[in-house]
Amino acid sequence: MLLKSVEYVRPDSVAQAIEILNSNEGAALLAGGQSLVNILKHRVASVDVLVDIATLEELRFVESRPDGSIEIGACITYDELDHSELIHSSHEMIAWVASHIEDQQIRNRGTIGGNCCLSDPTNNFPPLLVAMDATMNIQSSSGMRQVRAEEFFKGYLMTAIQPGEILKSITVPPVPADVGIGYVSLSVGEDSKAIVRSSAWVKLNGVVQEARVVLARVSPIPVRYQPMEEALRGSSATPEDIARAASVIGSDFEPVADSHGSSEYRREMARVVAKRAVLEAVEKVRGEGGSK
């Protein structure tokens, strides 16, 4: 509970925040704090300056683009995502995932940007954003750059964010009628820590045109499992097809073990959740989807 001494600063703008980052090597950004504060409490990371960006208006917006994509400011909270009509109308799954993160208190503080930048393998959004092929918009003193979500997550607590950079927003492509998205977790308790998780994006036109299948909690970062994607492509996506495709998740795949599951169990469960996520995605396109 008791933190090391740390300096606190609350800048007025993203530019100012970047300036502070550039002049303090040990500075870290503080958004909702629902992971970072725990890390500080347990003194497992050393931070000299906390730069509180949670309330910066520049980071707090949800906007739709003419192409049907949406851009979400990094400091939008899970609860705000869950209550955004825009999100619900165009990107329902983002709202659903947000509404099942832990509990109300965490949803009221935790931000989508923080969920990504902490890159904790238990975090909910990274696999979804990889599956949806989101783009991470990163700002620094030299301007903006874009990184695909798939390239953004680099390791446990590590991302593509370089010193002096801030994740400003996330752009999520449109979800046309021939695309379905699935998201399935096997958790220790309901809405609690995931043992294995999968998100699937499936473009379907009679047969599967294209699929992205992402597995999470099996390695430090979300991974696309391409052999399964290939097995799905061109199939008519019957439950049997999907189960067959999931069965290619094989022994080449060595998930991390911890107190919530062995490597072997996680491998087998990866097949199950990936199958279910694809099934959910397919059912959505075919109009059989549930409430999600």
């Binding site: 308790g189 609690s192 820590k193 911890d258």
Partner: peptide
């Protein structure tokens, strides 16, 4: 269903906080 204290072979507790030691919630 949820709570267990397990030690690894070196005697390190694998559930040292409520983050790992999942306590049943109102949903469980």
């Amino acid at each position: 269903l949820y709570e267990s204290f397990d030690y690894d072979e070196d005697g390190q507790l694998m559930q040292p906080s409520f983050y790992e030691y999942h306590v049943g919630t109102a949903l469980d």
